[in-house]
Design a protein around this nucleic acid. Sequence first.
DNA 1: AAAATTAAACTAAAAATTTAGTCTAATTAT
DNA 2: ATAATTAGACTAAATTTTTAGTTTAATTTT
Lengths: 193, 193
Amino acid sequence: MGQGKEKILQTALQEFSEKGYDGARIDYISKMAGVNKALIYYHFKSKEELFTAVINDLFEKAVSVSIEPTGTSVRENLIQVMEHFIDFLHSNPYFVKIMDQSVAQDRDIFQQLHRQNFFFEMVMGMYQLGVQTGECRKVDHPEDFVVSLLGAVYFYFSHHKAIRKFYGNISEEEVIVIRKKTMKDMISRLIFL
Amino acid sequence: MGQGKEKILQTALQEFSEKGYDGARIDYISKMAGVNKALIYYHFKSKEELFTAVINDLFEKAVSVSIEPTGTSVRENLIQVMEHFIDFLHSNPYFVKIMDQSVAQDRDIFQQLHRQNFFFEMVMGMYQLGVQTGECRKVDHPEDFVVSLLGAVYFYFSHHKAIRKFYGNISEEEVIVIRKKTMKDMISRLIFL
DNA sequence: AAAATTAAACTAAAAATTTAGTCTAATTAT
DNA sequence: ATAATTAGACTAAATTTTTAGTTTAATTTT
């Protein structure tokens, strides 16, 4: 395999994540990737198939970074998982963008990806374990708490462009540190005793 | 004035919010609105201008529902404002959708809308007042707490399609009640003493 | 040799935009 | 009063532009 295919996928990810499926231009991708347009159609049947390939490629690389918490308490593990989530969103801005583009319009490939539920289920499971071990307080609607927590983490990244200014002139790394601290605080106060 | 213009704006809001700017089709808007395509160009110079008109129209109607908390404590007021925010997002699904479409791609009209900051500034101001009156605890990075809270509220609505299933077979109104309760709980535990 | 890649011109369809004109109700001039 | 004029709302059809996708023949890489 030549390096063309990989370059096309990279560039297409960027283009799709910035412009969305409809806004993305094949001509532009070929120009940016420095390959001939015909090469794109040599490797991929259509724009739709290129998009699908981009998504699958992204998920393969993304989910391969799996999450195996190693702490000794539910609290520790939950915080580990959340920090991992924050790091992941921080280092994969295209992931967030293309996710949101695909949610906003609802592209069918998205309905098929069961990985969407994965994170929710995991956090939910950890909470339930915490209730069993007596570490977590019982709440009436844990699913709503989990959704709120995930939203609290996700929102900053998904609306980064609009939100970032509220943090002033510090580096992105510093923001990430603050975010982790806040989330730790939130988790502790919200669902632990 | 004929009823055409209003009908076009309504239909265009729906179309843009569902398909995004690039995915939206003038043909489809005219068909759905039951008007001739040329009428759209009679009222609006271009697709871009129609989009801008839709956004402005939406903001006018949306922000006219202003928020004047009437409680006697910062806590009460903050909760009132948040509940109002939840109600607003609940009853304006197009607003949320078109917001997210416009944030994802960054359409320039969006940078111009100062109303984006409005809600953040208000909540932030209320928190600072709470610190002065001794109702709220001091946190190192209040801006990050406010962003997190807003995210916790917003996320459910922006990712409604993907998230809704976690709540099971209850009515949307019931979910809203739960959401309000959760937010009240979160606010109390997170920033009040 | 086979696979990967380029170049550039091309097609067909889709979508945006324009044109040239109609219809109607209100306003103005006679 | 009534004829002339106007202004706004609207339409049908044509035009222009954009864009995905193709083709062909040649070149480079493995």
